[in-house]
Amino acid sequence: MFDYDAELARYHEHLWEALDVRPGNRVLDIGCGTGQITRRAARAASPGTALGIDISDPMLTQARRQAETEGLANLDFVRADAQTHPFPPGQFTVAVSRFGTMFFADTTAAFANIARALRPGALFAQLVWQPRDHQQWDTEIRAALAPGRSATTSTDKTEAAFTLADPDVATSALTTAGFTTVQVTDVREPVYYGPDADHAQAAVLHLQPARDLLSGLTPAATEHALARLHTMLATHTTAAGVWLDSRAWLITARRR
């Protein structure tokens, strides 16, 4: 399983600072993955609670296992789509999403469903990717594995990651869905792929978009593509590991 917590470690702190979780809060973590934010929110909100929601069974299994290891009892995880899940109305005082909201089929409908789950005045903080030409993790991996291939083909699995790259689109969807005081902040941090090029390449190949770029290649072409990938990752290797540049929007809003 790809380690998104390690990849996004630099972004995690920006998002956490924006949340300002207090004791007694009821926190909703949308697209919670393995539950890193859910667990931290549960500790900060106690005696309040935290709920993580995601569609990935493997990630939720790991999230539950880690929460049990840490002895956290004031949190829960549910496998469901936050766009349509019937949350109890007005249950939560804080909502958060770390690079999860871009993948909704209907962003406005999803934000409206989240708004119904929040109390008036509740904070909703999310991180979303800026346009793909600001993302080395997309442009350089793509250039290594499939040089010359268009980034906007109908089979491009990463396209959905940029549906909220235009802050005006995100602001419009949030406002229509029942949020106000939308604020958008530019955040630039590198993302982590491993301690060296070998580990980084193995991590990249856990990602479905990378595997898709290799699909259909001959064995010789695959070998060349992997060699280009390794060379590229080696150029981004530092004493602290392999890092690729990226940029995101930190978007906050309040439930009307």
Rank of each mutant, 00 (worst) to 15 (best):
A115L: 00
A122H: 05
A73K: 07
Q135F: 05
G241W: 02
T34C: 01
A225D: 10
G52E: 06
R40T: 15
G90A: 00
T84G: 00
D166M: 09
E223R: 12
A41Q: 03
D29W: 02
G148W: 09
L75G: 07
V242D: 10
A240S: 13
F179C: 01
A109D: 08
A67N: 08
P120M: 09
D212N: 07
A200N: 12
D81E: 03
D106W: 00
H134A: 15
A146N: 02
L145T: 01
I30E: 04
M232A: 08
Q130I: 04
R188A: 06
G48F: 14
S246Q: 10
Y193F: 15
T139Y: 10
A41M: 13
A197W: 07
L127S: 01
L60D: 08
D106S: 10
W243D: 06
M1L: 05
G241H: 04
T237V: 09
T61W: 13
S215I: 01
W129A: 08
L233Q: 12
H14M: 10
S56C: 08
G178I: 01
E70Q: 09
H206W: 00
H236K: 14
L244R: 02
T108H: 04
G35P: 04
T235E: 15
V242H: 07
A144V: 06
G241F: 03
A239G: 09
T84K: 02
D3N: 13
F87V: 00
A122W: 04
H199L: 12
L174F: 05
V27G: 05
D76V: 03
F2A: 02
K157M: 10
L75S: 14
A117T: 08
F162P: 04
P86D: 06
A82P: 01
L174V: 02
A9K: 09
K157Y: 11
